[in-house]
Design a protein around this nucleic acid. Sequence first.
DNA 1: TCTGGGGTCCTAGGACCC
DNA 2: TCTGGGGTCCTAGGACCC
Length: 428
Amino acid sequence: MMIGIVDCNSFYCSCEQLFLPSLKNRPVVVLSNNDGCIISRTDEAKAAGIVMGEPYFMNKEKIRQHQVAVFSSNYTLYGDMSRRVMDTLRMMVGAQQVEVYSVDEAFITLPDLSESELHAFAERLRNTTEQWTGIPVSIGIAPTKVLSKVANRLAKKNKKATGCIRVLSSREGIDDALEQTPVGDIWGVGRRYAYLLQEMYGIHTAKALSGMQEGWAQKNLGGVVGRRLIRELRGEACIELKDPLEKKKMIATTRMFGRQVTTLAELKEAVASYVSRAAEKLRRQHGAATALDVFVVAREKDYPSNGYHPRATHAAVTLPFPTADTRRLIAYALPLVNTIFEEGKTYIKAGVMLYEIVSDNAIQGNLFHTAESSTDKKLLRAIDNLNFSMREDMVSFGAAGIGRSWKMRQEHRSKKYTTEWKELFEVG
DNA sequence: TCTGGGGTCCTAGGACCC
DNA sequence: TCTGGGGTCCTAGGACCC
């Protein structure tokens, strides 16, 4: 069996370009919430020296110079495009053979064909996806997940030469690819381990890492995770494709505030609104949660100049029975806010997490509480449908507030694009 | 001088991913 | 002025049990 990873190229940017074809082959970036960081950039933006993950404000000069088109993130659009891409993959390789790994990536399983057959199939997959959805993808194919990521990285690195496709099946092909992969670019090696591997052990390439003892990896590279990584690099598959039917174990909704928040009332409004969001996600996967965690983050003097991240203050509660009812969840969440709020502090972020999620048809109810009645369920479904079709929260619960002055900034949303474009045009 | 051994369950936190 | 949001898996260590 072979494993492929299909990865949308500069996904968020590609989505924006789709609706403004004049931006094709132009430098484009998409910003994170609050227009904080650059989270997607086209090759042209990369060539202009714009760095992934860097703050927007630090790149404004380059953006002006190179007439880079700027977008705030539009997650509704990206979610919809993602679904179309995944549907296409499922149609081409079979639903059971697709693991949606993130909004812009999916692992697929393929039979043990020859290298040229795999390559031909990948080409077909790539062309079909682009034709049906307009989104260009890169594909890496290899015997393991980690190696498929290695292949994918090389496919993307030199798109013209590879045609965005790289298949690794022969021993020599794999070794060659490992030699060309710095340890820091291996899937599963983050900043911390990359530093450790290079500075402490003098290991610089994936090839060198693959030659290390498993026991050594067990000791120095995060236990069984490290051991597995070595084996995957050697071509022994240890990380299975996830069952597509598996549900999320945790659902979170967290946001930085658009401005500083200092009052308990505002904090509660924000938390109530996050609970509503999280509960919608919960109902969408037909789940019910049994545990709820609320957290807030206060500004600290040093943040963020020295890179120090302020700690979150948490408060959690276990519910007497699983629920997906927004009103109940809010009723449990708000008292938690009282316990963690401190007068005089300035809050910059808050969040809600739902845990211990069970399937909603498994809700038992117990002697003291009856499970949600079918009328309640109907009400919530009606609200979800309304909000989905109208988008901007037509219906919400009172506790979530009306003004929402704490909401995030978004100054470059797609619909405002024309104004931004004119601005950029004048520069040139 | 010098304290049993081995389970299990839970939580906090680290490391990673996109 | 200005640095995102949503996840997963694993480990260590404490509490508790016999």
